[in-house]
Design a protein around this nucleic acid. Sequence first.
DNA 1: ATGAAATATTCTGCATACAGCATGCAGTGC
DNA 2: GCACTGCATGCTGTATGCAGAATATTTCAT
Lengths: 230, 230
Amino acid sequence: MVRMNSVNVGAGDVSSVAPLQRTALHDTLVNHLRDMIIEGNLAPGSRIHEGQLGEQLGVSRTPLREAIKYLASEGLVELVPSRGAVVKRFSPKDVEDMLTVLQSMEELAGRLACEVGSAEEIAHVRALHDEMLDKYRSGDRLNYYKLNQAIHTAIVQMAHNATLSNMHTTLQTRLKRIRFVGHEGPEKWAAAVAEHEEMIVALEQRNKPALSEALGRHLKNAWERVKDGV
Amino acid sequence: MVRMNSVNVGAGDVSSVAPLQRTALHDTLVNHLRDMIIEGNLAPGSRIHEGQLGEQLGVSRTPLREAIKYLASEGLVELVPSRGAVVKRFSPKDVEDMLTVLQSMEELAGRLACEVGSAEEIAHVRALHDEMLDKYRSGDRLNYYKLNQAIHTAIVQMAHNATLSNMHTTLQTRLKRIRFVGHEGPEKWAAAVAEHEEMIVALEQRNKPALSEALGRHLKNAWERVKDGV
DNA sequence: ATGAAATATTCTGCATACAGCATGCAGTGC
DNA sequence: GCACTGCATGCTGTATGCAGAATATTTCAT
């Protein structure tokens, strides 16, 4: 009568049995198409050929269309009636607008993070920051960039606000396409790192206004750095 | 090679020749489903039966599924692999989180509106406000509510920031489902009206901090008013 | 040769068809 | 009587088929 079946308490501590993450094709496609757009494989302004693209990816048009609808709601593509979907093109003003909203969100997140963030979470951000400094010193731009994003994401996540996290992610994704292009000179890079340092300190002190201000300034400067490249 | 057909430059300045609003079925469905969810015809937590719902609406599953994907990206429904879509259920904390973000967005919008809003736009908001006061005095709750929303939307639109407008609309839509329920007593209603009056005055004076503060306080109070009902 | 109408082709949008997974139920062994 | 296995059913996920719109091409008139 010892029921030890079907429940995750079997012998050997099968704690890693993992619910076996299953992905639907349309979901995979959403991510794939997003990457293609970000990396420029699908040029802004260009139409998306369902038949051709589907064949190229080895999927039928149905899941592809579903993925496109999803991305349309996300704002990465535009749906034109009877004419399919085109990859959305962002004007410099669009980018500036997005950064304005992103800045406001991060400022909010910073304040909330100081309130409700746990000590562990703060330590985690610090760890990411230190790791990022390593990449900075070794000149590893790509990983620096990734850790940079990760830090911002982590801070936003510390706010424990799902809506804020989602919208922040959406914006960050859209801007990835742009920022990928933005190359900063060494002195600007150093400035960005310094700003990050400020942020971390403010966070560790749970200094709301300081963190919020630092995040805001950081993004304002980010716009200054990329605006000529857009 | 001068193709001048199919373009809206016909003779006689027929400004109402109508680009002939060609609406795709999936697009219509998006709006229809959204309304169904907001009005509670599709209960939170309930699964969406594609076959059944499709037959009920007289459409095939394909455009229906596309609409569902769109709404999933909007956050109104949740996609469960191999098990279809369920109408998302929002916890009180979710609602509070959304209102927090909404507040931050309106504060931002208020500041921007004071900067870049035109005199005509301000006058328009004032007109909406006066109209709303009429509805308030006559006790017309429904139209009061609609004008209330219209005013907030108008202020956000004055910021001339497409991203901000879109995200604000998304949030407002999600919360509509909730606020529809929120019934305030007469004294709270009066307070809300007073807050609105403050907002309009601040806007007409282009007083950034005052408008931002008034908008923020207004939404904070909105949460106080509905939080027991969620 | 040029421009416009007519035609052909391609692509989108929707419907239908089919395959695989999930769930509920009956049957079987203990 | 209880639990598990195997089957049946229903639903989701994907592919394909078909009609109409949009675009490219050809043809014809000037």
